[in-house]
Nucleic acid binder design. Structure first.
Ligand SMILES: [Mn+2]
Ligand SMILES: [Mn+2]
Length: 619
DNA sequence: GTTTGTGCGG
DNA sequence: TTCACACCATCGG
DNA sequence: GATGGTGTGTCTCCGCACAAACAT
């Protein structure tokens, strides 16, 4: 008998999500859209271009049905539609609405399409029908035997046949005025920017208005700007409004200062916009050629702030990594040198090692180790330095080398995940939870709830943020130094940690927090953990979180064990990382364990091996 | 007829 | 807009 | 053992309709 959907991953509580099944007004999407537009018009007046403002103005001047249809289309994944297939009963007559939209330039009706775009607008049965009637029309063609087996063909093949039957429009003027962008043609677009490559002008365009009425969204790039201003990114969209209004997502009610804006200058705004557009186009980095990369990299904007710099570094490092695969070490080196973030310098060392330039590699290691940007970088560079030193007979002791205590367990494989089974094993002598990062991250998120959501300047600028904008920046702690000092001062008082964690757990139940995943936090586990783990241990862990909120939130051991009887040194809890056959410790796991050793926190790695039923559970 | 995956909508 | 972790193939000491 | 590449489950929801591929 199978259990009802038992998740493999850490112990999860039943979802008791309280859904206020509120009814939304029929035009909820228009209301939300206009709310966003008005918010941005007001708060970003000085950053918007004339074009963007007239986009908003023109839109707001439309009739309600037209506005509704535009928003409907804008929110959908693709930008080209069959008008006859759209069904929005709440809008009324779609022909009228789309005609109004066209005259205001918000859509294009019956444009010319590339054959790729065009064939995507039809279903398989429709393609078959077109092909058949085309064959009938030009009867006597030698292709007729193929007709009977059309249903067996895959969609792609049918599209190819269909496309080969279309006769391209040759009028060049019409082509340029139609202005239809194909979202899927981005790779081609990329190559078309490069003058050395063949550009898109050769693409055949077809007119399908005889077969179907089509509508293509226009001017949507201006909405991107509004969205970017509002959310501070381009990956959130209008669904956030709905999720909130349906009670599916609950955001903390932090104070939004009107002066808080993610962008302060037009230049900064455009730089971010350019970044997002370019990164969307080159999403498949490991298919890019050397030339692609060099062309696109040159188009990247200058960094204007930490957020953009991080994103640019990440993209450049991905580019450079691909250049490494293509054996273009010099080009890769140049890109890495533009990056301040990890793992740029690590990669430079590795490239030198691949080229067997041991002296330069070792020297670079030492340079980097004098000014590392993170523990992770220090750990990796130390390891590399140690390897090079061994090779070249240079004395070098790796300060990050650490071997955690080992345990072994021989278990009968019952099919569950190895962590679940190891947890069961530890339950022989206490209680044990498979929590990975969720418990300790969660307690931190609860204990520091008011610090995390403190109305620091620039931290909150829209109602849909899971945390402050700078939560993952290294400056997070610096900008909240006093609040954090005060928090530690409070938590040092006896019973205060428990009190505050309980308080926020009750008060904030279900509200999103970057460190809290409510699904994995049960009251029982929380009580036990706060009860058993000494406050000094908690505070030490919290301080480590605050040093680097991004990388220290992960790497915590799989299991937490609460032994029934304290061991001889009075330990009342231990943290155990489970390793099945063929798995080994990750870098961040080692860093946490090294930290546990420094703090005197009981920890171990449990190596599980499978037994064939004879003598299980042997340590 | 099934299954599977995607996109939509609230 | 992932991310964190596990798993696997490969290679060299 | 180290490394790089890949896969998995999960992430901010979840039911539904539709289309396509497959036939357990
Ligand atoms: Mn794990
Ligand atoms: Mn593990």
């Amino acid at each position: 008998m199978k259990q009802a959907v038992q998740s493999d991953k850490p112990q999860r509580m039943q979802s008791n999500a309280v859904q206020n099944n509120q009814e939304l007004p029929v035009d909820y999407y228009l209301i939300n859209f206009q709310q966003l537009i008005h918010f941005v018009l007001e708060a970003y007046d000085d950053l918007l271009s004339a074009d963007e403002k007239s986009f908003a103005g023109d839109f707001l001047a439309l009739s309600a049905p037209a506005r509704m249809l535009y928003v409907r289309l804008l929110c959908r994944k693709h930008n080209a539609f069959r008008l006859d297939k759209l069904q929005y009963s709440e809008i009324g007559n779609l022909n009228d609405a789309s005609a109004e939209l066209e005259s205001a330039g918000f859509v294009i009706l019956n444009p010319l399409f590339s054959v790729d775009q065009a064939s995507r607008l039809f279903t398989k049965p429709e393609l078959i029908q077109h092909i058949q009637s085309h064959a009938e029309f030009s009867r006597g063609s030698p292709e007729s035997p193929r007709i009977s087996g059309l249903k067996q063909l895959k969609r792609d093949e049918l599209e190819n046949i269909w496309q080969s039957m279309q006769s391209p429009v040759t009028d060049v003027l019409k082509k340029s005025e139609s202005g239809v962008r194909d979202q899927a043609l981005d790779q081609a677009w990329l190559r078309s920017i490069d003058p050395q490559q063949e550009n898109l002008c050769g693409t055949a365009l077809v007119d399908i208005s005889k077969i179907a009425t089509t509508v293509v969204v226009n001017r949507s790039e201006h909405f991107d700007v509004f969205r970017l201003c509002f959310f501070g990114n381009l990956y959130q969209d209008m669904t956030d409004f709905v999720l909130r209004d349906l009670g599916l997502m609950r955001y903390e009610s932090y104070v939004i200062d009107q002066n808080n804006r993610p962008f302060e200058t037009r230049k900064q705004l455009i730089a971010h916009l350019d970044y997002f557009r370019i990164s969307a186009v080159v999403s498949g980095v490991n298919e890019l050629t050397t030339n692609d990369i060099l062309v696109v990299e040159a188009l990247l904007p200058e960094s204007t702030d930490n957020h953009l710099e991080r994103r640019l570094d990440r993209l450049r490092i991905a580019f450079a990594r691909q250049l490494e695969r293509l054996d273009e070490f010099e080009h890769a080196e140049k890109l890495y040198n533009k990056c301040t973030r990890a793992p740029a310098r690590e990669r430079r060392v590795r490239m030198l090692m691949k080229q067997e330039q041991w002296q330069s590699a070792f020297a670079l290691c030492q340079d980097v180790l004098n000014c590392v940007v993170s523990d992770e970088e220090a750990q990796i560079l130390s390891g590399l330095a140690a390897r090079i030193a061994r090779k070249c007979d240079i004395p070098f002791a790796d300060p990050w080398a650490y071997k955690p205590p080992l345990e072994h367990a021989k278990l009968i494989n019952a099919g569950d995940s190895v962590e679940q089974q190891a947890a069961e094993h530890y339950r022989q002598c206490g209680s044990c939870f498979y929590t990975e990062n969720t418990l300790i991250d969660g307690v931190f998120g609860l204990a520091f709830w008011d610090v995390i959501f403190a109305p620091v300047r620039g931290a909150f600028f829209n109602p849909f943020q899971v945390g402050p904008a700078d939560f993952h920046q290294l400056e997070f702690s610096l900008l909240r130094r006093d609040l954090i000092d005060e928090k530690f001062h409070q938590l040092e008082q006896p019973g205060e940690l428990k009190r505050q964690v309980d308080l926020f757990f009750q008060q904030k139940q279900g509200i999103v927090n970057p460190m809290v995943n409510w699904r994995y936090l049960s009251e029982e586990l929380l009580q036990l953990a706060i009860d058993r783990i000494p406050v000094v241990d908690w505070l030490a862990i919290f301080r480590r979180f605050l040093l680097d909120t991004r990388s220290n939130r992960s790497g915590l051991p799989d299991l937490i064990v609460f032994p029934d009887k304290p061991s001889m040194d009075g330990c009342r809890y231990r943290l155990v990382e489970v390793k099945g056959p063929g798995d080994s410790l990750q870098k961040n796991q080692i860093r946490w364990m090294r930290f546990f050793a420094e703090q005197g926190i009981d920890h171990a790695v449990c190596h599980v091996s499978w037994s064939d039923e004879k003598s299980p559970d042997h340590e």
